[in-house]
């Protein structure tokens, strides 16, 4: 446990002393809950269509695959015409692309960012590293199967996949979402204990609450 996360007494500017417990005060402790599709079939179909046609990617590059996402914004590939956008904050995005190898240190940040995204949210594993570790299969410091830690909706295989493969992946993901199969957030909430156990198995300095919105 880091020192700044421990419970301590703080003296305010007006001289009053009060107790601060960062893990309790700065985060929410509530477990994620399952949000089942709440409306009738026609409305849910409309919503799923809108979700599919408006994919907001969290601008978070974990490995070398992040370099393959940049050309998508350029005139040559132009992903914007498919309704794909990059958003700078996890609150506003609904698609998390794990771009390449994921070191244990980054996994921690990935989990926090993923949990801050709103239901429904989708995860795409980019490159072989997210499937079986790829060329980092025997590394002491990277995770091997992304699916153990986060619910993955779609893999794009390759080392590295080209931007065209990413575009094809987006179109595939759209089909999944439109068919109502993009329920990763609910899967995460249902199997929360299993995911947490897996995450804690690799992250040894676990100094955050179990769930932080």
């Amino acid at each position: 446990m880091k020192q700044e996360l421990e419970k301590r007494l703080v003296k305010g500017p007006d001289g009053v002393e009060f107790e601060v417990e960062p893990l309790r005060d700065y985060y929410c402790e509530a477990r994620p809950s399952v949000h089942a599709p709440a409306y009738g079939k026609i409305i849910e179909d409309l919503f799923n269509w809108a979700r599919a046609e408006s994919l907001w990617i969290l601008g978070f590059g974990t490995g070398c695959g992040a370099i393959e996402m940049r050309p998508l914004m350029t005139p040559r590939f132009d992903a914007y015409r498919y309704g794909v956008q990059w958003r700078p904050t996890p609150r506003q995005s609904n698609l998390f692309i794990i771009s390449g190898y994921l070191s244990v240190k980054t996994l921690k940040r990935v989990i926090r960012s993923y949990e801050q995204m709103q239901n429904p949210k989708y995860v795409v594993g980019l490159g072989s590293c997210t499937i079986n570790g790829g060329m980092y299969w025997d590394s002491y410091n990277t995770i091997k199967r992304l699916d153990d830690y986060l619910p993955v909706d779609l893999y794009i295989a390759g080392c590295m996949p080209r931007p065209e493969a990413l575009l094809a992946g987006f179109l595939e993901l759209k089909k999944l979402i439109r068919a109502g199969k993009g329920e990763g957030a609910n899967k995460y909430a249902q199997n929360f204990d299993w995911y947490k156990a897996n995450q804690k198995k690799v992250i040894h300095d676990w100094d955050m609450p179990d769930y932080n919105w």
């Binding site: 919503f47 809108a50 979700r51 046609e53 914007y80 015409r81 709103q118 239901n119």
Partner: peptide
């Protein structure tokens, strides 16, 4: 101007529906 195709003209409507249809709020 940047020689891209650009977003579909109705993209803003889709984004609006998407955002209204998100299931969880904080």
């Amino acid at each position: 101007v940047g020689r891209r195709h650009g977003i579909p003209i109705w993209q803003n409507y889709i984004d609006l529906i998407k955002n209204y249809s998100l299931r969880s709020h904080i």
